[in-house]
Amino acid sequence: MLRYIVRRFFNLIPTFVIATFLAWAIIQAAPGDFASQFAFDQVDPNKAERIRALLGLNQPWYLRYLYWLRNVVLHFDFGTSMTSKASVTALILPLMRNSMILLLPATALAFAIAIPIGVYSALHKYSFLDRVLTVFSLMGLAVPNFFLALILLAFTVGWFHHFHWFLLPTGGMTSTAFSSFTPIHKILDVSWHLIGPMLVVSLSSLAFLSRIMRGEMLEVLSLDYIRTARSKGLSDRTVNVKHALRNAILVIVAIIGGTLPGLVSGAGSVEFVTGWPGITPLFISSIFAQDVYVVMALLTILTLLLMVGNLISDLALALVDPRIRY
């Protein structure tokens, strides 16, 4: 087992290097660079060239990648933002934390709804309720996230105009007086702000998750040992609960690590429309400003998260699934 962990861990290294190199190459493929925007400077026409030299942007791009990689690996230093000159890590960590505050509950909620739907649909394949649930989960998927968030916002504003109190906040993560709240009040306040964006994000990943659940359950149900169990005369209920459901949990463990980045993606536009202080707005503004280090740091951290998530999933799977031997 330990050998497996070590091997898996070392397998991550080439993936990580290739992924970051790819990302770096893509960013560098764009014409112009961070300094180009200062060509417009009225008072100081030499500013662009000066900044280019200062930031080392006149060096070959692959060399800069190597410098970058060295700093990340040796010092966990993602460089400084070209826009704000601040340390990239300091810039993105609080935003990353905010994104996670939205994503983890949204993921949990999505799974909490998707698992029963998936299991029910698999056990009662083609029943009326199966179809209704399928269509319902697909409907959440079919509305673009940013539009769903806008509908929610319009509803919130409409509610306030009608009743003169807020059912949900119009946006953000905390109330303005947040810092003066008691700890419990703080948790309640964030939770209240979380409701809207969380619903939007989890609704859109519901279809994906419930369909995976359904598919995997069907797979398990068609396996030989379930058939054997049935033929042994065990009741449907026993078979479903004892064997199938237990295997379904394996499925969840297997996919949970891989779903987080998908949810990060899904939350992207929601963060804008609901004013959630996450990473996407910074990512977008950095990408337009060609602020390479911020873009790279965000891509790298998300990539790391995905890889570690998958690793944990695999390890957990290896622990719980008796069929997997290493």
């Binding site: 080439p14 993936t15 990580f16 290739i18 992924a19 790819l22 990302a23 893509i26 960013i27 980045p261 998908g262 990060v264 993606s265 899904g266 992207g268 990512f283 977008i284 990408i287 873009v295 965000l298 891509l299 998300l302 990539t303 995905l306 890889m307």
Partner: peptide, 15 residues
């Protein structure tokens, strides 16, 4: 593996 390790939306936006 490397390509799929980068979250879709962010890769798409970068591209």
């Amino acid at each position: 593996e490397a390509l799929s390790a980068i979250p879709d939306l962010f890769l798409l936006l970068t591209l």
